[in-house]
Nucleic acid binder design. Structure first.
Lengths: 196, 196
DNA sequence: CTAAATATAGTACAAATGTACTAATAAATA
DNA sequence: TATTTATTAGTACATTTGTACTATATTTAG
């Protein structure tokens, strides 16, 4: 799975066949199909590994006090994990089109995350770190934008030929996280100062 | 090309072979390869058709006075055109990985659009419709976010199983365009009211 | 009307891919 | 140690796909 992950990240899902993986591991194709009857199984296993990793790191986070840095930490954590499994992002559409199980799971996760995020936003508004909503669905839409940006900035950067150096990652993290800034109150902005 | 576009949009680039297209047109595969020597040629032709369409609609737009509605119009125009050629968005990574010509063109377009957009932002700031930047690269980052959202909201919506109804499109247009709202001055917000 | 061009159909071919199958080898267990 | 189980290698097969090739048919032009 490690080898497959590296190859998928490097070349993209479609460009990596069972034989490619087997060759890279210096085992026979037959051996590989013994452990993973279907190619989909490897991909699926990697997807659920990714999900588990996000879950695990989420559990580790300090949710006792919801402050602005929690949002930072969440976005950063997701950035790092998505980066590790970036082929999933890059080929997400194909993946989901071909794998109903993953699709179902993904849709459920999105829904769950959305309600969690809305909870955090509400809390931050109560604490006067975020300003109250001025438009209909304003924070729902904000969440959706963060969601899309989080999922696709890697793809977008790769498309423009950027290598995934630390500098690239930092720059893009900043680009994503700045979406929060104009919703901050003065109190929120002071906290922002401390965080950046 | 019409048939190919429809099939690509419907099933995704990878799922549509030359034979699929030929069958759907009720012509022979040989006939198709006579007109398009390579499958890539069809895809490439569609990409440049898309580019031309964006260009054309851009020319048609009234650029004489830069106001907030120009930004609305631009985003709406791009939304519609991208929707028409949505397979390009959906499979953009594959496309760009496999076609250096398209990649080169895309990277150049992004760069050009960025400087155009920055010009518009500057103008709107001068007109006190947008507030001045408070952070480093604030409007550059805003542009990049709009860029990514514009490119990928369709993909994201499709991944969640949404059909591309008018309602979906409208909802997502609102979601994208609202990213501008918190940067507006009071004057800008009054203009926003008139537009929505 | 005839010749040249364009268009179409049908088929063939090589390459790649997922996967199934068989035989041999290594490891575990009783 | 003997035997059962797990692992590995190697190969075979069916399918798909892009594309090339050839022979007709149709259209265009002189």
């Amino acid at each position: 799975m490690d080898t497959a992950l590296n190859l998928f990240n490097e070349k993209g899902l479609a460009q990596v066949s069972l034989r490619t993986i087997a060759e890279s591991m210096r085992i026979s194709p037959g051996n590989l199909t013994y452990h993973f009857k279907k190619r989909e199984e490897i991909v699926e296993a990697l997807y659920y590994e990714f999900v588990a990793e996000v879950e695990e790191r989420f559990e580790e986070m300090n949710l006792s006090e919801i402050k602005l840095n929690l949002v930072f930490d969440l976005i950063l954590m997701l950035t790092e994990t998505r980066l590790k499994y970036r082929f999933l992002m890059r080929d997400f559409t194909t993946l989901i089109a071909e794998n109903p199980s993953i699709k179902k799971h993904y849709v459920a996760v999105i829904k769950k995350r959305k309600s969690q995020s809305m909870g955090i936003f509400d809390h931050l508004i109560e604490q006067k770190i975020l300003r109250p909503a001025e438009l209909e669905n304003e924070y729902e839409h904000l969440y959706e934008r963060i969601q899309i940006l989080g999922n696709f900035w890697i793809t977008s950067a790769l498309m423009q030929g950027n290598k995934m150096t630390n500098a690239t990652v930092e720059r893009n993290f900043e680009m994503v996280v700045q979406i929060m800034y104009p919703y901050l109150t003065n109190k929120g902005k002071r906290e922002w100062e401390r965080l950046t």
